[in-house]
Each structure stands twice: as structure tokens, then as C-alpha cells.
Amino acid sequence: MKVNLRVWRQKDPVDKGRMVDYTVEDASEDMSFLELIDVLNEKLILSGEEPVAFDHDCREGICGMCSMVIDGQPHGPERSTTTCQLHMRKFNDGDTITVEPFRAGAFPVIKDLVVDRGAFDKIIQAGGYISANTGSAPEAHSTPVPKAAAERSFSAAACIGCGACVAACPNGSASLFLGAKLTHLGEMPQGQPERWERVVNMVETHDDAGFGGCTNTGACATACPKEIPLDVISQLNHDYLKATVGGRKK
């Protein structure tokens, strides 16, 4: 199949950047979208041009590295799928596909389609962990966890931190990411001791990075490749209010 690509090209963080048109004549519908870019890059290299820089790692939909907005949708038109697991059979022969980086002030473009998602690392560093003395693993049944809490924590822990929620949010907010991390730890007994300072510190770091505020549009949950539910944002608000207005954080 033949596809026309409109790809964002940007030399470095200070370059203004522009959309460039390419055509890939020999695409197969069994290719993943990243393989399509690979084919394009081989052609570019052979003709002495600079290949398109893009983030990728596991290519099996679990690492969260691939980050492209395809035709205005983070990770492309297929629901609950990362770009690497999006296949060309989802498109038609002769389609023109627009490929852009995740757009957010807090995710500055490094080159072409590669953005710096270090802001997410900073949010995690602010509290997305538990402090525990490691050693031999304790007996698993010594700390009972209710089934519902375990399930909820587990589905929140499915977040791979790809940033699609930010890319989709009309406000450029990372609330779904924040909510996922807070729910993941907050539903577990191990997450309780640091629960209230965690939420305050993570929200502060989120705002520091220049992410916007949530208006509950639900675009993030729609775009999320791991189907993180919208109610984790309600959990985030709940914990934050309890910690600040409710005076839980000392």
C-alpha cells in the first residue's frame, strides 16, 4: 500500500520546526506504524537525508516510549493501543497521515517527534514511590489487602507513563497520570504512611512543570492506551483536598 506522510521535522529544541511531506510506496498493511517510519528512514538515509527521530523501545505495547500524535490522536486512531501496536491495516491505501510530537509546554521537543518527558520523572521523584526498608520479602499474607482495593490499584498501576493523557488533554494537564500513580499507591497499605505528603508534593511538581489544570473533559481516558479510568482524577482531588483543606498533611 501507498501512504502519504506529513511529518513534523525539527532539528533541535530551538529550531522552529515545520511539517514535511513524504510518500512511502511500499508499505505493507501488516507493518506497525513504527515500522512504517523505519521504512521511511531507510529511504531517507539512502538518499542522504536526516532520518526522522522518534522514541521507541519495547515495540510490544508495554513500555510507554513511543509518543506520536497521528492524525490528531495520541498513539493514533486505534483505541487502547500504543503507536508500536498500531498496524497499517487501520489505514487505507493512499491515505495522508499527519504525524506530530506530543504537544505540551512541559514536554519540549528535543528533535522531530522526540519530546522530553522528564517532567514525569520529576513528578515520580516527588512522591511516586514508597519508602520501605528492603530485605527479605515478608510473608505475603501478613498484610491483607481487600480484593476491590487490589483490583483498583492494579488497574491504576497499568499506567506506563507514556504521556498520551497530556497530549490529548485540551488543557495540557497530566491529571490522569497523577491520579493513576496516587491511586496505585493509595489503595495499598504500603502507600498509607506517605499518602498525604505524596499527593501535595506530586501536585506541586505537576504544576511547577507547567501542566494545565483538569476540566474533566475525559479526553485523557479516551486516549489512554492502558484504559486508566477517569475516576483516578477524582481520587487525586479527594486526597489533595483531604491533605490540604482537611489538614491531613502536617
Binding site: 492524525d71 490522536q73 506530530e100 485540551p170 488543557n171 495540557g172 494545565g212 489544570g213 479526553a219
Partner: peptide, 15 residues
């Protein structure tokens, strides 16, 4: 929100 996305999507935000 405006500051959080200084560069808009060329294809528009479809989500």
C-alpha cells in the same frame, strides 16, 4: 491551559 500547550496540533486535537 493556554500556556500548557504553546504549539497547537496541525491536524487539530481529535480526541
Amino acid at each position: 491551559a493556554k500556556r500548557a500547550r504553546p504549539v497547537k496540533y496541525a491536524a487539530g486535537n481529535k480526541v
